[in-house]
Design a protein around this nucleic acid. Structure first.
Lengths: 158, 158
DNA sequence: GCAAATTCATTCGTATGCAAATGATATCAA
DNA sequence: TTGATATCATTTGCATACGAATGAATTTGC
């Protein structure tokens, strides 16, 4: 078949197969949501391999408390991107393990203040270097330059 | 303070503050895992705004079944990156809603085959164009060029 | 100063997500 | 053939994650 003999039919066929998105050709594996979910799964798995006794949200909670000091549960939730119901569960479990302690706000009686215990503080400080390794390993498939670009774009998306 | 009067002390101070990562300076908000979790949250929220009656994993399940046809639960799980326990729950709920149906594998009696019902097929085909919008909206903070780069790098990570 | 609106925390229900243990079946190897 | 392995599905237990409803306390608006 010579180049000049391409029919309109052929052209349409090519468009449908190679370019035009239609409902018969939805590639799940190429959708950003699907890959985002997988990337997140991989990170959680790397995290668990390095830090077995704490989940990423639990560590995030401790790290943020270490950073900002005593805060209310709600305030903490917004700092680590967890809604009130989720944060409560995380705090409850950290409290049960003696890593954080709770107290009532003197002025605003609605608020429940959260703070690190001495044990909690020790734990965070011990784990922060490991957390750096986790970040590194998560980004390991990318070169330093790629990683920098990726982080910039990912931050725009989040 | 002249340029020639910078002490070793000053230099160390500058390094600590601006470059040297140490355990007193861990920025949770800049860690890839944290941002990945937030980006994923944002995507799920966009998804829910467009498709209220299905979760992303449920839709992924239907879309993949639409793509590959009847498969075993385990096979399906590996195609959509869900472990056996998770896939079972998703399938159970889709089955309860009449979107998929189950049958026994004739030869290998361990396997449970999953397939779309007519209703399930209708649902996927109706939703695929909306899923495209969801992908678009998720990537909206990026230019077309940025989005292409991001997807390439994200795929490397996942 | 007081009613309306808001904020904070809790609870309930539902849905992933995964590790570990179990039982049924299939495959492999000696 | 049969005993050891491997695979498939299920179940249990635990940990996010979030919508919606609720109650207590505070702030706002008039």
């Amino acid at each position: 078949m010579g180049r000049t003999a391409v029919s309109a039919e052929d052209v349409k066929l090519k468009l449908v197969e190679a370019e035009e998105p239609d409902e018969n050709d939805y590639r799940l594996q190429e959708q950003v949501g699907f890959i985002l979910r997988k990337a997140h799964q991989r990170h959680v798995s790397i995290f668990a391999a390095h830090i077995a006794d704490l989940t990423p949200p639990q560590f995030a909670t401790l790290a943020k408390l270490h950073d900002v000091g005593e805060t209310s549960q709600n305030q903490l939730g917004s700092l680590i991107a967890m809604d009130a119901a989720t944060v409560k569960g995380v705090i409850d479990r950290l409290k049960a393990r003696g890593l954080v302690e709770l107290s009532k706000h003197e002025v605003d009686k609605r608020r429940l203040l959260v703070n690190l215990t001495a044990e909690g503080r020790n734990a965070v400080e011990r784990l922060i270097p490991i957390a750096r390794d986790i970040t590194q390993e998560t980004l390991a498939p990318l070169s330093a330059k790629e990683a920098a670009i990726f982080m910039k774009l990912l931050a725009k998306l989040a």
